[in-house]
Every structure is written in C-alpha cells, then in structure tokens.
Nucleic acid binder design. Structure first.
Lengths: 353, 353
DNA sequence: CTGAAAGCGCTAACAA
DNA sequence: TTGTTAGCGCTTTCAG
C-alpha cells in the first residue's frame, strides 16, 4: 500500500504539501505546477487515500447509516435506499446499510456499529408507513425517520402524503365521470388506510358527491383481499373502484375476470403504489398512484445533511401550556409529506351508461 | 465524545489496560475484577470505541463492499443483499452498499470509495444472472462475483444452478404424469435461457420422452411475453407448460383466463423465480422453482471471508497448453452453483385425459 | 509558499 | 499483571 508519505518522498515535497496537492486544497497556495506534478506522481504510484486515517484526523467519516426493517421484504425499500444512496453520493458520503428484519436486537447492534463508525447521521426507515418508537441511541446522532414517524414528532420525518394520494386516485375516477365509486380499503388501521380514506372523502366532497359508507369495503391489503372483496363490491352497484393498493387490484382483477366483468368497460379500477412488477403488467394496465419511494430516500438524507432549522418548531410553553410536559428540550418537527403522483394507464373508462 | 483515555483515567488504570478490558482481550491476563470494573465504568460513561481509530491502528476496517447494478430495480437483489449482510454480520463486518444502476462511472467511484475505506473485500453482484466484465479495480482487493461471472473465471463466482432448476421444474410436471410439456423460454439468450432449456431437455430424456422442438416457444421474459405466447402454446396441444419465469406465467394466466382455459384442470403450469409479490398470489397459486437469492448473498461473503483454496485451480501449463495464454498468474475458479428448490402450490394437476 | 510537528483515538510491542 | 510508548496515515496549525 502506497501512503501519502511515499508520494511526498517521490515528489520531493513535504508530506503536508503532498496532502494539499492531492486534495486540491484551495486554502493554501502552492504553485500549479507543483500541484500537478504531485498529483501525477500520486496517480502513477497508485496512491489512494486511507479514509480511516483521514476520517480520524478530520473527525468525520463521510458515511451515513441507513437502517431499514426490510429491504428484502419489499420492492419498495429498494427504491428508498436508492434515493438515499444517490443523495448521499452527491454529497460525497457513503451509506452503511443494515436491514434489521424487524429484529430489535439486530437494530441495537446495528446502531452501535454505525455509531462506532462515526456515521454523520442515520436514516431510520420502515418499509411500511407506520408509527414507530425509535431506539434511543438514535438520539446520539443526527437522524431522520423515513416512511415512518414517532408519536411525539421528536424526530424529523418524511412520509408519503396518503391523503393527497387518496384524493388523487379518487379524482381520477371522478374526472372520468364516475359518481358511484367504491373503495376497497385496508381493514387494518394504518396511516395509509386512514389517510387514503380521508382523501377519498375529500375528493367526493369537492365533487359534491355524498359519501356513502356502504361503498367502502374492508379487506386485507393484498391479492387475496381484493379477490375476496368482489362479491361485496358487485353488490354496491359501483361503476368504479379505488383499491387500497395494486396488490388488491390484482386480486380483484382475477375475481372480476372469473365473473366476466371487464375492466374498464364494466368497471373502472384505480390502484395505489405503482408497484414494480405488477401495475404496468396487468391486463389492462393499471392506472394508479405512485408511492414516492425514491424521493423519500432523497429527502431523508437531504434533511440529515442540511438540518434546515426552518422546518422545526421548538415546543414553547405558550403554544402548549403544560398540557403534556414531555421531554423538556426535545424539539417538535413537522413531518414532511411527499406527494404521490398519478400514473395513468388503461383501467379507467367513462361509466357504462 | 468520551475516549478510551477518559475511561482509563476514570478507572485509574492505564490506557492499555483499559483497551484490553474493554475489548475483552484474552491474550493478556488482567484480574477479572479490574476487567469488570473498567467495563462498568466505560459503560456508565457511555464510552463507544472509535472504529476509525481502531481500524487504522489494526489495519482492518471490518467492512466489506457490496456493489450491485440494481437493488432497486428488482425485488431479487434485496434478498441477495440481505443474505450478504447477515453473513457479514455474523463475522462482525458491516456492508458498504452501493447500487450503480448499471452506470460504470458510478461503479468506478464506488470502487474508489470502498477501497479508500479499506474494505476487506467486495461482493460484485448483478440482479440478472449474466456474464460481466468486472472493473479492474476489483483486482486490488479480495472479491467475488455473485449472480454473475466473468468469461475466464478469474474471479470466484457464485450463481444459481439454472440447469438443475430447469430440470426440477420439468420434473414436477413429469411427476404429475405429463408427457407433452411445452416450454415458454426467454427469447433472448442468457445463462437462464440456455441453462433452463438444458434442464428441460435432461428431464425429458431421463423420463424417456423425446424432445419436440415445436414445444419450445420463445417469448420475452415478462407478463407481456407470456400473454402473447398463448396462441402458439395452445397450438402445441401441450397438457402442461414450463414458463421461463413467474412473470411469464402471470401473463399467461391472464391470457388463458380470457380463453376459458383453466389452470390446472385444462393446463398445468410451472414457473421459475418464486417471485415475491407474484407467485404465491396468482389464482391458483403458482408452483415454481425458487431462485436462491439469499443463499447467493450468504455464500458470496462467505467465500470472501474464508478463501478456501480447494475451490480454485491454478491454470497450469499442462492442462491448457498455451492455447489461450491469458494473464499469466491469474487463477481460474470453479463457479459455485447453488441449487434452486421447488415450491409447490396449486398450478399442477394430472393430465386431463 | 512550504515544512515540521502535534495530534486524531486506539492497538500492540516492549518494558517493568 | 500493568504501564509506556511508538506508531497507524493523514490533516492542519504554526513557523520559517
């Protein structure tokens, strides 16, 4: 291994000068030619800076931790991680990734590992949008929650805008002229199910369509759920349906086909997630709303790297007068909601009649 | 930040003793009580070793690089990365992950980044099994190819056993009693398409069924390909079909349903990949062969960490007498083939007649 | 403009 | 058994 010392020696300059030349340090003026020469020699010798030594000396590691409870489990997380990586990259940082698989023991060791490695921040992410109680070690370093949030908003967080997403999806149907729109929602309560429902209702309201509770059907948020919801759905007499997610829509497609109901001629369908191997490949292609996974990743590390103080509001005694004392000096952050764009394909038509 | 020095000071021991105590070094005997005390004090002070300093001093980083051309693109890669991570973890190493998205510029910088960070090895992986020409920097460190291989086998590599997979898939059909088995293969030539075809033929041969070329249909390896292959398939009069992958099978399912052909009553189907959000959720559930993604990851880092010399064969002049000179001192490795297990669901039945 | 030198926090001889 | 100390490779004052 060739060190900076070797380079300096070979170039006949001091090690300090070599360092400056190699790092192209602007704060110090060394003749352009010397700089060039040193760099050339360094390259020819195959010099490569030792990031451990450099990091130690500078007190920074140029790395940031990324903790996820499931990269593998879902195609989703992959996009988040990619966004995070790209943004980190742009800032000269590298990602230390660990997938805890939801195991909190792994989570703790992962955190130690990262902290020992002097990460400059940690992105704590979940593959499903939900509330989490982050391990306390997270406080020891700058960190942000992605696709999840803590109850008291003591961490900055970035999540998809479920309400807007639900609104967008429903509007797609309304715009096509539908009035009787069913909603196969996730039976389990979650940010997604309540947010999307709210969006659905907002859209109806804005279109002056009165909300009919019998139009919302609860089901498990996967193919089996969608498949099983078909009877209830047919009974409603809806001309269109908003499915909680693409998997639900996929299951529904199957059931509809078995009944001879054609999409979109007999029934218009809109999904949610724009899920990789599914949405674009159903017959007909599924119109849906995309989860902004990549952007979540990007924003997550961006927030880490440039802690813009304008986004946070210190919880002062006036606005919340001793109602819930809580940890004294913790700030309260406004979660960032990233909007979910629509992706139009072929599953929507004007109503039959 | 509390350093080892602080701990030593607080405990009234030398810094060396503190180091030994904290790291539970067995090579040196220090009284159990001292050891305990130091560790207790360290913990109470919130001491955390600086991995940069420690790594620098020891000359190791306890980290390994993982380069992929697409974690995000495919649900597959997620599993590989998880396997790699778990195995690294077991050995006290952490993964530096970067997804190059197939961009060779990113690839080069990623390599530099990793090399600078003194990674102890690099796993170079691809989301689709194929031949690659790895960047030469890979030679500067211990590294292994995962789900890909280089032409001259100058790197250790671990790949799925496509032949065995194709054989297994076909045997599933044969075991159910099918004789006339079609194969919708990927039109593009790839390790998967040639391997699986070979497996298919081997299975037929072993079952004494003669190979009928008209039974193999070429199609794009996705839903659209499967969907479009239905006409050709029906013409063959096959009672069963082996699809190149699950996506193909999914598309085929759609087309069959539109024609009123029922799976498995009228036609038995077997896929390949056991793809996450698809295989288990089709109607009926798709019997398939699983790609051993997780194991590929595990084996990759394992091979990195314990370079077992029994797996490699130096290319000696006798066995290959000057035919292709090639880089003199490069070893030739035998790629490791990981077998693909079958996953039985409901898409296979005995032949109709 | 350039070099000497003092660390960064930790490990591992080498002494004691 | 424990402490002293010389680095690991690089950055960065501080003098020259």
């Amino acid at each position: 291994m060739v060190t900076l010392q070797d380079v300096a020696h070979a170039a006949g300059v001091s090690i300090a000068t070599a360092s400056w030349a190699v790092n192209d340090n602007k704060d110090v003026r060394i003749p352009e030619e010397t700089r060039k020469r040193v760099r050339r020699i360094a390259k020819s010798m195959g010099y490569r800076r030792n990031a451990l030594a450099s990091g130690l000396a500078r007190g920074r590691s140029d790395s940031i931790g990324f903790i996820s409870d499931g990269v593998a489990t879902s195609p989703f997380a992959g996009q988040v991680i990619r966004g995070a990586q790209d943004e980190a990259w742009r800032n000269g940082k590298i990602l230390l990734v660990v997938d805890t698989n939801g195991d909190s023991r792994i989570e703790h060791s992962a955190l130690s590992f990262m902290l020992e490695r002097q990460v400059e921040g940690i992105v704590y992410s979940s593959w499903v949008h939900h509330e989490v109680v982050p391990p306390k070690e997270l406080r020891q370093v700058n960190s942000v929650l992605v696709n999840c949030y803590d109850r008291d908003s003591t961490y900055p967080a970035v999540v998809p805008d479920e309400v807007q997403g639900g609104l967008t999806a429903t509007n797609l149907l309304i715009a096509a002229g539908h009035k009787r729109i069913a909603f196969i929602n996730q039976s389990e309560s979650s940010p997604a199910s309540v947010g999307r429902l709210r969006g659905y209702r907002q859209a109806l309201e804005q279109a002056q369509i009165s909300f009919d509770p019998s139009l919302v059907i609860l089901a498990k948020a996967d193919q089996e759920g969608g498949y099983g919801a078909v009877d209830a759905l047919m009974k409603t007499g809806a001309t269109a349906v908003f499915c909680h997610n693409d998997r639900t829509a996929m299951g529904l497609y199957d059931a509809l086909r078995e009944r001879g109901v054609r999409v979109p001629d007999h029934l218009s369908v809109v999904g949610f997630d724009n899920q990789e191997v599914i949405a674009a490949h159903l017959h007909p292609g599924l119109t849906t709303v995309a989860l902004p996974q990549y952007d979540l990743g990007v924003l997550g590390v961006r927030m880490l790297l440039e802690p813009s103080s304008d986004r946070k509001h210190s919880k002062d005694a006036e606005s919340a007068p001793a109602v819930r004392p809580g940890p004294k000096d913790l700030q309260e952050y406004q979660p960032v909601h990233v909007s979910c764009p629509s992706v139009v394909r072929r599953s929507i038509a004007v109503p039959a009649r």
